[in-house]
Design a protein around this nucleic acid. Structure first.
Lengths: 210, 210
DNA sequence: CCACTAAACGGAGGCGCCTCCGCTTATTAC
DNA sequence: GTAATAAGCGGAGGCGCCTCCGTTTAGTGG
């Protein structure tokens, strides 16, 4: 949650110019996003922006110069989170056998969703307003998942007749599940179950449970 | 816009108890709704609630006691507006020949929609959240329209093969029309056109233009 | 008419939003 | 190193939101 690759200056929505920020400005901007990510996840999206600015050690004016609206800030935080989720896919693929990578990534997906549920209302509005954002982000996630699945299929550790969109659909059920206390556990079990299903009848048997 | 039948205490959302308000409380409540209706229509739904309270000659505390959220106030204003639109249908039916009543009512519908467009965003959110409200209100409007049409059909002043839902659908086009300067004129013309269409081939000919 | 009480009032106060602009400071040119 | 300057900072201030609670008043019973 606190260690991602240094995102120097590439989280600008419009890809056109993006002139490099002054060093201090970049530092402040990063700090704000960092703090906001934690604050939104912890206290929901209604956290006082002044509180976020305070925790980031900057004035409120600075926050508003970087993020002219609350939605803008939410969007950047959200993009970063998705980015980091997708980066994790590559990371896991490098250091684990494909099926393990897939399983662990899906578990991470659960964590990601857990955070998002707090933002549900506000995020839904944002995604409605800004449909580019939605297709953008869901596209990236889909791609990451597809690559993990294809690797696992090629490796023979899961069945070859699975489609990434099916799996994504199954994971979608996690998002819409009711918000009980044991939501997280249930979701983790659902992922395990799903994983068993994927391994069933695969070319090579990897009966390791985790 | 300022004269509707005295709505003593029946605009409570939940129909259960509704004990009568104290006279002063009722007065204040009515004043608030009145002022809010004008203010929302004029300056949009983001008008300061303190401003509304001020104009209604009450303290902000009083406003909040009656309407615990901005949405609550919007909802009540909206309900009242629909109510008044439907009441107009009865009124017009009493004092005009059926086809004239229908036409005038549709013109009034245009005015009503004009007001609503200012509230569009907020109202859409409200209607999404509170689906009872939507079906409630559209049901009432549909009913009012149907009665006007049936009367005109029975009277022979419009064609007998029209369905009220068709007409409502046509009127719906008004709502979604682009928000240009001449919106109102266009809409009025659309209603006239629609009316001509309805009269065409009717049993009895009422070629009066207004 | 009076006394009593629950209902209602209203505005001060604390907080958050957002803008504006005088003050810093990183960067560039020399 | 210094000077120049544009980029960036930050917080005061004005406004709106909403709550809380001391004060007022409508309704009621005698």
């Amino acid at each position: 949650m606190a260690s991602q690759p240094p995102v120097t200056a590439k989280d600008k929505p419009d890809a056109t110019a993006a002139k490099p920020l002054r060093a201090d400005a970049q530092r402040n901007r990063d700090a704000l996003v960092e703090v906001a990510a934690v604050a939104f996840a912890t206290h929901g999206v209604d956290t006082s922006l002044e509180e976020i600015a305070r925790q980031a050690g900057v004035g409120i004016g600075t926050l508003y110069r970087h993020f002219s609206t609350r939605e803008h800030l939410v969007e950047v935080v959200y993009r970063r989170e998705v980015e980091s989720l997708c980066a994790a896919a590559d990371e896991l693929a490098l250091h684990h056998p494909p099926d393990i990578a897939l399983e662990q990534w899906m578990q991470r997906f659960v964590d990601y969703i857990a955070t998002k549920r707090g933002l549900a209302t506000s995020l839904r509005i944002l995604l409605n307003t800004n449909s580019t954002l939605f297709s953008d982000m869901s596209g990236r996630v889909t791609l990451a998942l597809r690559q993990l699945i294809e690797a696992a299929v090629a490796d023979g550790s899961i069945r070859s007749d699975v489609d990434s969109s099916d799996v994504l659909h199954a994971l979608g059920g996690i998002y819409s599940a009711p918000d009980t206390d044991d939501w997280r556990d249930r979701s983790r079990r659902l992922v395990s179950l799903l994983m068993d299903g994927l391994r069933f009848g695969a070319g090579k048997s990897t009966e390791d449970g985790g």
